[in-house]
Amino acid sequence: MKEKMAQQTTLNTLEIGASGRVIAVNGDSRITRRILEMGIIPGVLVKLVKSAPFNDPIEVSVRGYNLAMRRSEAAAIEVAL
């Protein structure tokens, strides 16, 4: 999956309404673990639904439900467009 053919970026830089497939969730903190436990694991499709007032946090759609996270946290999530 990590081929260069797909354009790679991180979830926080996605445009509103854009989707991507998760390649990796970086880090090994509690928050990394919680992101994974909430179902954001490599291979899953994520969509940036909207951002809150003042541009942060963001609302992400994953596995049919919506999750709010800060852009700083979304930066750890690598996605392929």
Partner: peptide, 10 residues
């Protein structure tokens, strides 16, 4: 700053 991760339920 603390992490933020919260479900937005239906």
């Amino acid at each position: 700053p603390p992490p933020f991760l919260m479900e937005l339920p239906e």
